[in-house]
């Protein structure tokens, strides 16, 4: 996310790597289809991205990634630091994107309910290993998974409108948001990832699997946390 630039400029820069000329270049730089997909951005298209709310910034990051016409969109921690309603909204846009544009989405998420609810295929990572994998609905129905990640409730209850996300509420416009590492943050080098990129943390993923992975990134503490939150929610 480029805080100093307008939302529109942010989106256009997403297509920086596409090397068209003349008419095809104009088509590549055309942002209207992203606005159709993420209509919330239309209102703020001329505003500087740095002044937007956390959820809007996340949408800008997703939209910018889409401008590079990725085959696979990798999203790390969709729900981190966002208000539940905004997460639900983003999730809906992602489902739409997957359905209408055929873009595969790999979601890395510690909110187990959200992840299992959203995607068609899921992988449960524990301490860096895949502990379980399979169809999301099946995983959600499995008693082991339900006990560990979704609380003691039988199977997966129908999701409430607003997810009870353990994360803090919307960080507000002044917060640069989780996707904005400071200017001095060296970070991993993503120069090689040509066809994808999202959230500033996303990398291209050669895996063609359309669907979603759920992982705690090898950190069991996080998994436990999200499991606890899920337990609270089920009670």
């Amino acid at each position: 996310m480029f805080g100093d630039l307008t939302v529109d400029d942010n989106l256009r820069l997403g297509a920086w790597q596409l090397s068209g000329r003349g008419r095809s270049r104009r088509k590549q730089r055309d942002t209207s289809w992203v606005y159709e997909l993420l209509p919330d951005l239309v209102r703020v298209r001329a505003r500087k991205a740095g002044g937007l709310s956390g959820g809007q910034q996340q949408m800008v990051a997703v939209g910018r990634a889409l401008m590079s016409r990725p085959e696979v969109l990798v999203i790390d921690e969709l729900s981190l630091g966002l208000a539940p309603l905004i997460v639900a909204d983003l999730a809906e846009h992602l489902t739409e994107l997957n359905r209408e544009q055929g873009t595969a989405v790999v979601l890395i998420e510690q909110n187990a309910r959200l992840a299992l609810d959203l995607c068609s295929r899921a992988y449960v990572l524990e301490a860096g290993r895949i502990a379980a994998e399979g169809d999301s609905a099946e995983l959600a129905a499995s008693p082991d998974i339900a006990r560990a990640y979704l609380g003691e409730a039988q199977g997966l209850p129908s999701p409430p409108d607003a997810q009870d996300d353990p994360g803090p509420d919307d960080p507000g416009p002044d917060d640069p948001g989780p996707d904005d590492p400071g200017p001095d943050d060296p970070g991993p080098d993503d120069r090689g990832s040509a066809d994808s990129g999202s959230h500033d943390r996303a990398t291209a993923d050669p895996a063609p699997t359309p669907g979603t992975a759920k992982t705690a990134r090898g950190n069991q503490d996080t998994t436990v946390q999200s499991a606890r939150a899920a337990t609270r929610e089920a009670k």
Partner: peptide, 14 residues
């Protein structure tokens, strides 16, 4: 301008 705003994100978009 993007490089000055956020060099890391600039690298991400190529």
């Amino acid at each position: 301008s993007a490089c000055s705003s956020n060099p890391y994100a600039a690298r991400v978009v190529g």
